[in-house]
Structure formats: structure tokens, C-alpha cells
Simulated scan of single mutants.
Amino acid sequence: MQRNPRPGRAWIITPALRPDRFEAAQTCGARVALVDLEDSIAMADKQAARLQAEQFFTRPNAPTLGVRINAPTTLEGTRDLATLAGYTIKPDLILVPKVESARDLELVAGVLDAEGYTPDLWALIETPRAFDRLASIMAAPRLGGVVFGAADYAMTVGCGLGWEALLYARCALVNSAAAAGIGAIDSPAFDLEDLEALQREAELAKEIGFAGKGAVHLRQVDVINNVFTPSPEEIARARAIVTAGRKSGQGITSVDGQMVGPPFFAAAQALVDEVDGS
């Protein structure tokens, strides 16, 4: 059972020290726009980035706006949380990197949760230890969803960034997220020029159960949205399956020559609910 509907399709991230990119990130069509305090910011610039990042959340009528902080068990992560707690306008979503236990999320919630403000907390799963502890991480009551961190995971394991090399990790993450009733977002593709490769990877990610995919450049957003947005044909088929399920009393039947039953009815109903509710 889904705990709560969560934003899928394209997520984009932009460095906190590039305010000239803020508006573009917020208006490019991504479902979630994140400002980054972690990997894109040099250690010497962390405090300047924290102060600059507050401007990211002042835009009205924006999509879901979030921030990727530094790992909460580090000094820089602690400073991030203290600064965020003092923001006048706060982020909707906090992406927590290097999550390896439910306690990491409890630390963030303990600092930021306040009367009238409980940000959506998403875990960036990017280490072998995190994959060994997925069940306990997914049990964290404040966890809204998970994001796959391919680059850090591949670096730690010593594997490549190709689809086959990371297939086990992706499938494990999607399976655990589904068991917990939360969404999963795939890692960005790091080749900024090869949009055909991005589309293939996004299609594969959707096929194994991801709800969306990260983007690190504006040109990637439309490709990702096009893959993860249900097509008119997919919607029509889902409606036909829902109708067939009702007529059959949720028993086995067929639609366009394909056998369908309860799992198909549930999946089709979820798609129809998403479309009608968006």
C-alpha cells in the first residue's frame, strides 16, 4: 500500500552557488527541483552556498522545491540543518545523502520538524552498506521515498556505470521501496549529450518500477518526462482493463486478447487514479 502519493517523472538538481540557474530549474517542467549543498559545492564554499540557497525557495507557483544537504552525520550536514531551520521560507523536500540507517532520517526530522512544518524526507541510497540495510531504512516512519545514487555506489563497489552493472542495485531498491509503499527515483544519466541513451535508460528504469529519474541538465528533463508520462494509449488500455475488471467481478478475463486478472486490475486502477488525480 502506498503511504502517500509522491512526485515522479523528472527531478532536476542545480548548485546552490549558481543563482543564475535557479529560475530555469524551477520552470523547466521537472516535478521536483533541488538546490544542491553537497557534491557540487567545494568545502570552502559550503557556508556561502547555505546562505545563497534560501533564495531558491522564494519563487511562487513553483514545483516541489527541495534541497540536497550534506550527510547529516557530518559536520557540514549539521551546519546545513542548523541553517535550514532558520530559513524564512523552507524547502518542501529534503534529500538526505549517504543514508545508511533510519537514524540518519531521524536526525534530520529531529532538527527540522516544527509546528506547521514537516518536510518530505527522501533518502539517497548510494552505498553497499545502505543496500545491506534497506529493510530497516524503509521502516523509517518519516521516509517519503528513495533515490538511487549510481555514481557513489559504483565508485564504492568498483563497478561500471552501465545498466547491467547496476541492475541488481536498481532492482533491489525498487523492490524494497514497493514493499514499503514508497516511490523510487532513478539516478541521473551523466552523459549530457546522448539523449537517445538517456531515453533508453529511462525506459528501462520505468520498466523495472522507478517512478522517475534524476536530471543534471535542462535538456534531459523533457526526455525523462516523456518516458514517465503515461501515453494516451497506455491510459486508454488501463481504463479498458479497469472496466473489464468491474464487468468480471474482478475475475480472470481478457482485454484485446490478453488474459488479465487482479494484479492487472490493480495496476491499471493505480494508473487511472494517477492520471485523474494529476
Results as ranks from 00 to 15, higher is better:
V96P: 11
I89T: 13
T78R: 15
S101Y: 04
S101W: 05
D92A: 08
A114S: 14
V108C: 03
L93V: 10
S101F: 01
I137T: 09
W122S: 09
L93A: 09
L121P: 10
G116C: 05
A85H: 13
T118A: 06
A114G: 06
L95R: 11
A109S: 11
L143M: 08
E106M: 08
G116L: 10
A135Q: 11
E106T: 06
P128M: 06
D80G: 06
W122Q: 09
P119W: 00
T127Q: 15
A114Q: 12
L84H: 03
E106R: 11
M138S: 05
A130N: 02
G145I: 08
L134F: 01
R103F: 13
A85I: 03
P97N: 14
A139M: 01
L105D: 09
I94F: 00
G144M: 02
G145L: 08
D92C: 01
L81P: 07
E126Y: 14
D132R: 05
L107R: 14
G86D: 15
V96H: 12
L121D: 10
V99M: 14
T83Q: 15
G116E: 06
I94L: 10
V99P: 13
I125S: 01
K98L: 15
R103I: 11
R133W: 02
A102C: 09
L93E: 13
Y117H: 05
D80R: 11
L93K: 10
E100P: 13
G116H: 08
L112Q: 02
P97S: 14
P119K: 00
P141V: 00
A140N: 10
P91I: 03
I94E: 02
K90D: 04
L112S: 07
T78V: 13
I125N: 07
G145Q: 04
K90Y: 04
S136A: 12
D113N: 03
P141A: 00
P128F: 07
W122P: 02
T88E: 15
T88P: 02
L107M: 15
L134E: 03
R103N: 07
A140Y: 01
K90T: 02
Y87G: 11
P119N: 01
L93T: 04
I137N: 03
A130K: 00
A114N: 03
T127Y: 12
E115P: 08
V108F: 04
A114P: 00
T127C: 12
L124K: 11
A109E: 04
I125V: 14
A123L: 09
R133T: 03
L93M: 14
E106H: 13
A140H: 05
L112E: 04
Y117G: 02
A85P: 05
K90A: 02
A123D: 08
A102T: 09
R142W: 01
I94A: 01
M138R: 04
T118I: 00
L121C: 09
A139R: 09
A85S: 14
P141M: 00
I125A: 05
L107S: 10
A114D: 13
P141I: 00
L107Q: 13
G110E: 11
Y87C: 07
S136G: 01
R133K: 07
